[in-house]
Amino acid sequence: MSEQTFLVLTALAEEPLHGYAIVQAVEQLSEGRMALRVGTLYGVLDRLVADGLAERDREEVHQGRLRRYYRLTDSGVRALQAEVARLSANVRAASAVLRARGLQPWASRA
């Protein structure tokens, strides 16, 4: 699972979101590292919907513009849980290696 897909799934895990809200949520979750382009966002959403991990929720008109909301399916929640477990295991393994070398797992940012 790519980081983009992971962050979009994470953004949708809290509540159904429309496209622009997903872009903002991904930027916040990644602490500004990832600015999701619209073309990229729809590539990710298309794949999630096709794989049954997300689905269309509802549509609203906000200031004359269409907003289509997307939400996570049960399969999407399970996929996110599995990915979190996989990443957590990797983090634990890497942390153990660093501690064994007498280093802190999380270096302070410059």
């Binding site: 496209g19 622009y20 600015a35 382009r37 619209v38 513009r65 907003r67």
Partner: peptide, 28 residues
């Protein structure tokens, strides 16, 4: 839906008149 997202982050009047889609958005 996509146009709504494109314009959501660009509310400046001058930008709405003279702005262009960015290279990154175009590539995506």
């Amino acid at each position: 839906e996509m146009v709504g997202i494109f314009l959501a982050g660009r509310g400046d009047d001058l930008d709405l008149e003279h702005g262009w889609p960015g290279w990154g958005e175009t590539g995506a």
